[in-house]
Nucleic acid binder design. Structure first.
Lengths: 184, 184
DNA sequence: GCTCAACCGGAGAGGCTCTCCGGTTTAAGT
DNA sequence: ACTTAAACCGGAGAGCCTCTCCGGTTGAGC
């Protein structure tokens, strides 16, 4: 990739991060391009879809969540480890005004963005390890599926951003999930 | 209201119902007006916002849900009654490609649509009666709040519509909620 | 039948997404 | 260092969209 191209790409990413954080999915790609100092054509060449742009932004976050998950595999309480990690996933999914949660909630269709599918798979693999460990420990019912659990956590994260004034909503809703009951 | 005005209003509602069912929130109000055979101005005069249009469409459904809730207050098992009703709420919220769930998920802001707030309040009152009965019966923990429960149910309904090919997702996610465990 | 308030709908402003293509710049090869 | 071809840039513009305004029309009451 040419140096000027990489430069533009990064300027777009910076502008997009700011715009998504402020306006969520309603952010105008036009204005992102403008505030990045490039033309619309340049933006669309680098990121053909809004999804591609988002995945490029959160790629590092996904890696961080996976690493945190790996660390938690060494936690003395498997159930506590799973809970902590799901809380972190939910917390991250609330960024960008719930745009991340909306995009990550369900497995992508086969013809969808490949990078998005990769993010999904990495999160799923990490969660699967944590869940199975918690299930072997007996603290979580065996019929719980990691895909469903992640979907539910993302749904909760999404809806929490719909009522931005209620800052404890996320935790209250998570507490309504089986296996995430508040500790006595 | 003049006869022609009422006529137009109902034609718009019919067209909107069809368009929302097909395209959800991405439905074009322009095309709704066109397929109803009226101009954009007419549509916007009757329904200034997308929310107003949606509330007008689902008004009857909300009444039906409340009536079903009242009937279920006579059910022999309070817990079963609550479960059945929440399942019905979720089922209804998945209509219009999740648009209903998205609009009903969290309490409306004070400056929001008055009709929407009324819908919210009616649903909440019905659910509250069912929940308190189930809590008195001892089948549901006392710390559960009806507002949170409805928000969670709507979030589940919304996310279920994000993966339209997985028809059992709604039930699997509901089963992950405390108090909605599958019966043995 | 007359009147006038209520209503209609199209024109149009302004914004958005996304594409296309002529001009420019960079990196590689000599 | 110079040439060259491929890669890249960005603006113009087509075709959507939302929402408003206003001149012409229609229906309800007298």
């Amino acid at each position: 990739m040419r140096a000027d191209a990489r430069d533009n790409r990064e300027r777009v990413l910076r502008a997009a991060r700011a715009a998504f954080a402020e306006h969520g999915a309603q952010a105008s790609l036009n204005k992102i391009a403008q505030s990045a100092g490039v033309g619309p054509g340049t933006l669309y060449r680098h990121f053909p879809t809004l999804g591609a742009l988002l995945v490029a932004i959160i790629g590092d976050d996904v890696a961080a969540l996976c690493e945190k998950g790996r660390d938690l595999l060494g936690h003395p309480s498997p159930v506590e480890a799973l809970r902590t990690w799901l809380r972190a996933v939910a917390e991250h999914a609330t960024t960008m005004r719930g745009l991340v949660a909306a995009r990550m909630a369900v497995p992508p269709a086969p013809d969808d963005d490949a990078a998005l599918a990769a993010c999904h798979e990495r999160i799923r693999a990490t969660g699967s390890a944590l869940l199975e460990r918690a299930q072997r420990d007996g603290g979580v019912p065996g019929d719980v599926e990691i895909g469903d659990l992640l979907t539910l956590v993302n749904a909760i994260a999404w809806v929490s951003q719909q009522a931005p004034c209620d800052e404890y909503l996320l935790d209250r809703l998570l507490a309504l999930v089986r296996g995430m009951e508040p500790l006595p």
